[in-house]
Write a protein that binds this DNA or RNA. Structure first.
Lengths: 206, 206
DNA sequence: TCCGCTCCGTGAAAATAACCACAAAACAGG
DNA sequence: CCTGTTTTGTGGTTATTTTCACGGAGCGGA
């Protein structure tokens, strides 16, 4: 079946398919087609069929895809048919927003540990979590089963913090700090930098 | 010279080059090479040279690139050698974080208008801005010179809000709502959905 | 049952993107 | 002014990604 590895660019599209399909599911749409799904997310129908075919045959000719079934399959492929624990490091304005954001829980991601190095914040509660000292990071993270961290510390502290997280067993980092992290090859990093996105758009605004 | 249009994927890398170069500039590094720049952001040297060559010749053989000069050039290419006004719609936890985030101002983006439809919030101040009612959105945005909006409203309100923004002269939207927007071809939209990024990573975490 | 539509999965083709490798420019040291 | 080293910009090649287009399965109606 899928012995040779799937291109990362294909994997990156699957969450977008899933998001749109989950929306259909909530709205009671039972069946869809590659055509319809493609139009809803701005991707060609052929592309969607090709992407999905990398993982198996999920549709029926003449009918299309069962939304429920395809959601289940994509969740399994992306391993989001289980709940994931998250670690949150850096409880500034952004970290606070992340800690209280309801969208994570609804989609299977639970923040279980929060850290900040500001002594005034340590011990306080945020979104049901006690803020721990950065000094306890390695101990606490190692003791947890979290494999994913969200990093919302200042750029100047990001690399150092990432190193500690990796040493503590973290395997994937969602980095909100506006800088590139240097990590071992088996650690996955994704970046969220709104300014980078804005600058991409200003190119076209002439 | 560069009459035929530059691939979007190339444009998307320029902000990353710029970010790294600005970091070098702050640290007093006067000169760099495609090799060094590439290593700092995990992109091949050949790729960087090829990308830059789409816009002109910025380096010197044997020497490399003047960091200062290349920063200036990239800023001009991306049109971030000027300040840009932003509109922020949706002042929940995330919107609040965006309103107070210092990283925008430092990199030339100024939030000039903030909107929320919650009457309790309207009239209050956030990060030096008065929160306006959503009812005044079209009037206020049309009167401003902002061309870019950040959208941090609930998914259910995103499309409707985007439509109003576009009607008011907005040409680019940074969408934080976890849903695809349907917009005219000449409107630019970029998406920030952390859950999508997390799901991309869980694929590899098996 | 047969016909007309729909729509998947896929091999082949086309289009894009990334990489390689080299001529030539820059410069430092003798 | 010559030599050795560095590093750009780029034509050519390779690799990846997207699109095309078609056989055939599914389904509904007559």
């Amino acid at each position: 079946m899928t012995q040779k590895s799937i291109p990362d660019i294909v994997v990156g599209r699957l969450p977008r398919y899933l998001r749109s399909l989950e929306y259909m599911l909530r709205n009671g749409i039972k069946t869809t087609s590659s055509q319809e799904l493609g139009e809803s997310i701005g991707i060609s129908a052929a592309q969607i069929r090709k992407d999905l075919s990398q993982f198996g045959e999920f549709g029926k000719q003449g009918t299309g895809y069962s939304v429920r079934y395809l959601v289940d399959q994509l969740q399994a492929i992306l391993h989001v048919d289980q709940s994931w624990d998250l670690v949150l490091v850096g409880i500034g304005d952004l970290g606070t927003a992340l800690a209280t954001y309801q969208g994570f829980v609804h989609r299977g991601f639970h923040i279980v540990l929060a850290f900040d190095n500001n002594p005034i914040k340590v011990g306080k509660k945020i979104g049901g979590l006690i803020i721990h000292s950065m000094d306890d990071l390695e101990k606490e993270v190692s003791a947890s089963k979290a494999k994913i961290a969200m990093l919302s510390v200042p750029a100047s502290a990001a690399q150092e913090t990432a190193d500690k997280l990796i040493k503590s067993g973290i395997r994937a980092i969602l980095n909100y700090a506006p800088m590139q992290l240097i990590v071992p090859a088996d650690i996955h990093v994704e970046y969220i930098d709104p300014v980078t996105k804005l600058q991409h758009m200003t190119y076209y605004l002439g």
